[in-house]
Design a protein around this nucleic acid. Structure first.
Lengths: 148, 148
DNA sequence: TCGCAATTGTTGTCAATGCAATTGTTGTGG
DNA sequence: CCACAACAATTGCATTGACAACAATTGCGA
């Protein structure tokens, strides 16, 4: 009777996005992070800290999309590894400020080339003009989903 | 001395992809899956089964990017919920074939409209031509990372 | 200013995940 | 045709991660 309701996965945006995301993560872990004894979430925190400088934990949560209690425990581990410091904010004693140590910065700078190479590998065969469209659209869609 | 090695997160593909993926998943869970008592991975399996029909578990692993032992256990739960059946393959008794039940198909058809609406929401303000570029590029990048 | 709600971070708990080992089956080279 | 490698699925076990409850601090409205 009625047409069957169908979901064309091969053309369904959330499927395409998360499938690629998973492949990128798997590659990053296997080829780069494992030797450094870093998990993907640790790397995300370090990358955010490198990119934006010292941050409160709540801002790390926001920028990394990692859940708050997980961030709290990851920061503890990163501090124990000597890659970050955690100290109370001067302006508000309920806040905590996380900052890369010299060792942490060195670690990030050792990883960045591999991270860039990963992006290159993924981008093979895609015109620069198309990649610009992709990145702009990914940012816009994120805004659409979160209201920034 | 040397320029500092930097990673521009706001323009870094893996970051943009996984950040959007997380936002899409969070929305899907909160607004659609939770009321059905489904996890995101359960939904992925159901969607693949709906899209491609009965599948061996190993093929579900391949198409869903979910780890094999997790698929095994999720299928057990889905079967217990009456959404799929699991039976030994006729051609090879080490294989198992998973198939949607009528109840499972009905469930998927109730979810699909919300899934399409999610895609619409994310796509707001993005020209159809750009979206075509995005989807084509996402598929190509996945191929680049996995060799298909 | 006082009280209460919101913010920030931590901890307890338990289900879920991933990895490795295991079982059972199929395919294949010698 | 036999031994052994490859494949498919499951299970054990340790780790992870999410959610909720909590503690501490700050901010705000009446």
């Amino acid at each position: 009777m009625s047409d069957r309701l169908q979901l064309d996965l091969a053309n369904y945006l959330p499927y395409l996005v998360n499938r690629l995301g998973g492949a990128l993560v798997a590659d990053m872990i296997a080829n780069t992070l494992a030797p450094f004894d870093l998990t993907i979430d640790m790397w995300r925190l370090l990358a955010v800290l490198s990119y934006r400088g010292a941050q409160r934990q709540v801002d790390l949560v926001d920028m990394s999309s990692i859940e708050a209690s997980t961030v709290s425990r990851l920061v503890t581990r990163l501090a124990r590894m000597g890659l970050v410091t955690r100290k109370r904010s001067e302006t508000s004693s309920r806040e905590v400020v996380i900052e890369l140590t010299a060792k942490g910065r060195a670690q990030v700078e050792r990883i960045i080339p591999a991270a860039l190479k990963l992006e290159q590998t993924a981008s093979t065969g895609i015109p620069a003009k198309d990649m610009a469209v992709v990145k702009r659209s990914l940012r816009r869609m994120f805004e659409n989903m979160t209201g920034r």
